[in-house]
Computed example of a mutant assay.
Amino acid sequence: MMDYKIEQLESVLLFKIDRPEKRNAINYEVMDGLKEALEQARTNDEIKVLVITGAGTQSFCSGGDLQAFHGLKSQSEAYEMLSKMGGILYDLSTLPKITVALINGTAIGGGCEIAAACDFRIARPNSKLGFIQGNLAITTGWGGGTLLYERLVPSQALLLLTTAGLYKTEELHDKGFIDHIVPGHTFNDVTNLLEPILLKNVHVLVAYKQILIEKWKRGDLQERIRLEILACSKLWEKPEHHEAVEGFLNSSSRKNTKS
């Protein structure tokens, strides 16, 4: 079985990270799947909206798979992985279709970066979200920090990044990061909420999205994301990061053993 699913439901393309046993963490296969979904959404005029979500009811996405990527030790190794996903998130943010993160559970680290790359974020109540990378002695490395500064008032974005804390859905709704809170988290909840958009002509939607894309291109979004990735890769190879990851993995292992 693949670690992701892509399904077209009328004018919506649904991409689902299908690794609930890994809290829907990102690995290379999921990266390739997301890239495939972006290409489908880009080239199919029937598609008006791309929705990204996670399998199950516990996690939207827990970020990069630490077990899969912990073997990357040097800056060059880290940069290769980070730039691969960073390029995908740049393509996601500049996709000429409407994009939605359906946050069906916990979203941490890279999961929040994916959410920041989407046009809209819809979450269920009491979910926990956070740009926790600072707790692992690195920064956002997929472009999520750069994109967060585009989504929020800079002081609010800086607060979320530097505290590296976990926030409830309601708190991030107040800060402007979460656009809508829905009691359910099903596909129907999203389509009902987005119905006014889905009723519009696809070329109208593309034209409006293109205005935003042009703004970002003139503001060197791609280059700013590259510099973010480079900064993260430099921190990645430092012993502080690898020690923090080891501590996190050991802690998670002890919790799993007790349960």
Rank of each mutant, 00 (worst) to 15 (best):
A37D: 13
A157L: 02
G111V: 05
I88H: 00
I211H: 04
H180I: 06
I132V: 15
L166V: 07
E240L: 06
L160N: 09
T139R: 01
W142A: 15
C118Q: 11
F131R: 02
W236N: 10
A115N: 04
K238S: 09
L72S: 11
H185K: 07
V182D: 01
I52N: 08
V182H: 05
I178S: 01
A164Q: 07
P96A: 05
I52C: 08
L160E: 08
T186E: 11
I178F: 01
Q156S: 05
Q58T: 12
S62D: 10
I17Q: 11
L166N: 06
L160A: 13
S76N: 15
G105W: 05
Y79K: 14
N104V: 15
L72P: 00
N192P: 00
T140N: 08
F131W: 12
L129V: 03
T94I: 08
H185F: 11
F177C: 08
N192R: 05
V204C: 01
N44W: 04
G143K: 07
I17D: 08
A78L: 00
I98H: 05
S11R: 00
I108R: 07
R23Q: 13
D32K: 09
I122A: 05
D45L: 15
K128L: 14
A164G: 12
Y28D: 12
Q222K: 15
Y4M: 07
K5Y: 05
E237Q: 15
T94G: 04
I181Q: 03
S93Q: 14
L13R: 06
T106G: 03
H242G: 06
S93N: 14
K217M: 13
E150M: 03
K97I: 10
T53R: 13
E36P: 01
E237G: 09
L72H: 02
E7A: 13
L129K: 04
K209T: 00
A117R: 06
S259A: 12
H185C: 14
V153A: 11
E223Y: 00
L194D: 00
T139Y: 01
E237M: 11
I88N: 02
L205V: 11
I122G: 00
P96V: 10
R254K: 14
E240T: 13
L172M: 11
Q75I: 05
H185V: 07
A68D: 10
P96Y: 01
S259M: 13
L158T: 13
E223K: 09
E214Y: 03
N188F: 13
L102A: 14
